[in-house]
Amino acid sequence: MAQAAADVADDSGVRVGVAPQDADLEAVAETGVETWAQHVDPIDYGSNTGHTLAETVAEAGADGTLINHSENRLKLADIDGSVQAAERAGLETIVCANNPEQIGAVTALGPDAVAVEPPELIGGDVSVATADPDIVTDAVEAAANVDEDVDVFCGAGISSGDDVDAAGDLGASGVLLASGVAKADDPRAVLEDLVDPLV
């Protein structure tokens, strides 16, 4: 899947990243695809057994990291610490949030991007851009009210080029997705469909 993503990114000129589990970061990065960690902790070097150090994922080849994914929620202070740790390690950041109110709060922490992902739509067959377009437009507005330089992505149920197109029409700068590609019989074909509206 990582090699397919690298090939589609090269062929289309569209930015495509993959966020594997930590154990696979180096192998995924070796394909040449933009590689993202799924999480970093708000820690520095020291006694932190069981935590993920930002510098470690950077050394493994990660270009950036997700923070506060719906499957790994953090308190606001820990999100802030994780953003700072990622910046210290030279990693880009995308902070996830459930709703526009949270988008506004996490935008204030200075990440590179934020992503609105309603948990009830994650892994489903209906895109957030279709099921609840207002949540996307409200998230874009909430982020812009705090910092217009922070990109806004949307995720949850994204699985086709039409979903990407709809997200862009609502003001999103990009999308996050997993199951639409990970569960596909032909990940490359799905990726090609996803980037088609962008080329």
Rank of each mutant, 00 (worst) to 15 (best):
D41W: 06
A23F: 08
P20D: 05
D41S: 15
Q3T: 14
G174V: 01
C96A: 09
G168R: 15
D10F: 08
E120A: 10
D44Q: 14
E148R: 15
V18R: 01
N99Q: 03
P119R: 09
V140Q: 02
D132M: 06
G171W: 04
G110P: 03
A113E: 04
D147M: 08
A62N: 00
D186M: 05
N72W: 08
L53Q: 12
Y45A: 13
S159D: 08
A105I: 04
V146N: 02
L109A: 00
A58I: 04
A189E: 14
L66R: 00
A178Y: 10
L191H: 07
G64T: 02
P111N: 07
S47R: 10
N72C: 13
L91V: 10
A184Y: 04
A113Y: 03
V181R: 02
D134M: 08
H51Q: 15
E120Q: 14
V128A: 15
S82M: 03
D162S: 14
V195H: 02
V164I: 13
R88A: 14
Q21I: 11
M1S: 12
V114C: 10
D147A: 15
P100F: 09
G168S: 06
V190S: 08
G110N: 10
Q84C: 05
A172Y: 12
A77D: 15
V114G: 06
I94M: 14
V190H: 11
A77E: 15
P118A: 03
D78P: 00
L66A: 02
V18G: 00
I103C: 14
A62F: 01
E59G: 05
T107F: 09
A167R: 02
D162Q: 09
E59A: 13
N98I: 01
A2S: 13
D134Y: 07
S47D: 14
A29D: 12
P42W: 10
I158L: 07
A58L: 05
S179G: 12
N145M: 06
V116E: 00
V40W: 09
D22K: 07
S179Y: 06
S159V: 07
G171A: 12
T93L: 02
M1R: 13
N68Y: 01
A62T: 00
A89P: 08
T35H: 01
V128Q: 00
A89D: 08
D78Q: 11
A105Q: 11
A156L: 07
L91A: 04
T49I: 11
T52M: 11
D196T: 12
A167I: 04
A5T: 01
E148T: 15
Q102R: 04
V136T: 12
N98Q: 09
N48T: 05
A23V: 14
A178D: 15
A97C: 14
E71I: 01
I79W: 04
D196V: 00
Q84P: 01
L91N: 00
A139F: 04
V190Q: 11
D134L: 07
N68R: 11
A184L: 00
Q102L: 11
V126W: 11
A156W: 07
D196Y: 11
T56E: 14
